[in-house]
Design a protein around this nucleic acid. Structure first.
Lengths: 348, 348
DNA sequence: TGCGGCGTCGCATACGTATGAGCAAACGTC
DNA sequence: GACGTTTGCTCATACGTATGCGACGCCGCA
């Protein structure tokens, strides 16, 4: 083993000199393009590869990217820190899928971590520099997505895909990969209807994010289609789960509640018990998100296939990178329902 | 807002055309070099900056790196996946410090995540390509460091720094930032001596990693210097904490034990209790690593300043990047002792 | 008028790679 | 022997940026 430290990284020209060929011959052999390499006879190729080994040549990715517009590097950018604990497990599964799939198809992954602003929020642009463009394309994710950044990226023509649906003014169709909240929420309503439930309610979170809109549309459409009734605290107005509404629910004909979050479901459960009602004996409950380990009940809930979504995002991104003119529609990944013990058939 | 999507990212030449100047003028204004920019009169500069804004120009980092050898991008490479949970909190604090410091001094951060081999171990080189060289330099960390990779990186002259001491054959002095295990272990021995302990023992882990060597040297030196005696299960031989040795300890004159890990300390505690001895009444115990939340006792232990180490690593790396000829010595970061209730003065 | 100095900018080049075009030799065909 | 065709390479160039050097105009001074 050589223990001499080099002062300068060798380039193809150095390899060429040692092998007694031209730089372009080296490029053709190194580049891996089978057609080009095939035109170089075996022994020349062998000489070149030996010189590569001898010098410890490694390609310069920046030069390659400059020339090729591509370096088989995909970025991952989160709009919030990945590491701080609260959201960590939220990102984790996405990242697993992303990493897994990227590796399968031979892409390297770069995780952009620096926070642009001082406020912990992350921005793509830092004093005018799009930091992402070392990578061929980037997967964006995060609930606190910065829409201005998204719009600008789209205008620049930079290849990216967003996990989760985002509607951005000025960027008509940004490519997203989204869980099928619309479909699964409809399925859930159907399942409840099949169990005999005719009178439902829907508990909404205070946030006005696109994913919630999908769920609400899915629920609303299904209620209408199936001829059910709905008495929700502000399905089309204010969110809320106040005492007055709980009283109303306890007295009314509703036998099933769909809750957007585990938090809401737990609050509902407490409210019902305080009124002498129980789940699922009196009211069936379904939660429209994954539930944590701290849940007090085995909630019937929907499962977001995060790992699959991560994988799908990589595939879609690569497609966009390969063909930048591609008009990708949103990719919808089906969700499934995880059986719990919080729904039951309607008592006569 | 323009809603037209561009087909191609603008370059300095485009900006120049719009502003009616040459590409080099644009470069001088953009580049941020104050001396060069100062030589351009204000109104020309203004025209250029307006054109930049108008076109939404962002610099091409690859071209910059190709030309400059530098793009203010620092890499982070872990030899094991960051995300899988077990080790997560181990890396977490390092990463916090790294991110914090990098941002302070205006560097962006790139986290290399792809696993080269199929076995979950991560390698710097993937079929001959040093993936790190998109970044100006890289912080390496991980207990399962691949020494061959390290040696090769060093030979290539690539700027990097390793967190934790690693001795690599063929690479005489790889730059490391290391906790001062040697010093703190000596301090611990001194503290025990000050409490009247004359007869010590030292429990070692089975692994032969450099950080353990530092601790063992620190302990050994201090025992000698202070004229103490040591009866350890194989301080210089096999590790072990078997029943025979525990019997010996319970009967012998030893009043204090230094354990390399929380695991060993817990095992020791059980062994002593089974023999009617307690901690710290009969035997004082100090743990030579951070202790987890699941500890049964408030162990007297040493604290590794992970965040500080991360920050120090960035500073050292930047120094190396700025001056590649720099022969950096290992940077030693002092540790501290966290008081617990597992040591006491010797009973007469 | 001639000349030096300064302020303002453009020209040309280099960074390392990939690739179309092209050239020289070998080989076959008539 | 003239003329394609294939083989095995080389030449030249482009990617987008940064920068040394020099050009050009203008002012002041002799």
């Amino acid at each position: 083993m050589t223990t001499q430290r080099r002062e300068r990284a060798p380039r193809q020209a150095d390899v060429a000199r040692l092998a007694g060929v031209s730089q372009s011959a080296v490029s053709r052999v190194i580049g891996g393009d089978p057609e080009a390499a095939a035109r170089i006879p075996v022994d020349t190729r062998r000489r070149i590869l030996e010189a590569v080994k001898e010098l410890g040549y490694v390609p310069n990715l920046s030069a390659r990217k400059l020339r090729n517009k591509t370096n088989r590097l995909l970025g991952v950018h989160t709009f919030e820190p990945v590491f701080p604990h609260a959201r960590e497990s939220f990102y984790f599964e996405f990242l697993l899928g992303i990493e897994e799939r990227a590796e399968e198809i031979g892409y390297d992954l770069v995780l952009f971590t620096s926070t642009g602003a001082g406020d912990g929020r992350r921005r793509v642009y830092r004093d005018g520099t799009n930091r992402l463009n070392v990578a061929d394309g980037t997967v964006l994710l995060g609930v606190a997505t910065d829409k201005a950044d998204l719009a600008r990226l789209w205008q620049e023509g930079y290849p990216f895909i967003h996990i989760g649906r985002r509607d951005v003014p000025g960027a008509p169709d940004i490519p997203c990969v989204v869980p099928d909240y619309f479909g699964i929420t409809g399925d859930i309503a159907e399942r409840l209807a099949a169990l005999g439930h005719r009178h439902l309610a829907y508990l909404r979170e205070g946030l006005e994010l696109e994913p919630y809109e999908d769920r609400r549309r899915g629920y609303g459409d299904a209620v209408e289609r199936l001829g059910l009734t709905d008495r929700s605290p502000g399905l089309r107005g204010e969110p809320g789960l106040d005492e007055a509404w709980l009283d109303e629910l306890a007295r009314g004909p509703e036998t099933a509640v769909v809750a957007e979050s585990e938090r809401l479901a737990e609050a509902l459960l407490r409210g019902l018990r305080a009124r002498g009602r129980d789940v699922p004996a009196d009211v069936s409950v379904v939660v429209l998100e994954g539930v944590g380990p701290a849940a007090t009940r085995r909630w019937e809930h929907l499962d977001i296939p995060r790992k699959e979504i991560g994988r799908a995002a990589i595939d879609a991104l690569v497609a966009i990178v390969d063909d930048p003119d591609l008009r990708t529609e949103s990719i919808v990944v089906p969700c499934s329902i995880v059986d719990g013990d919080t729904i039951a058939t309607v008592r006569p």
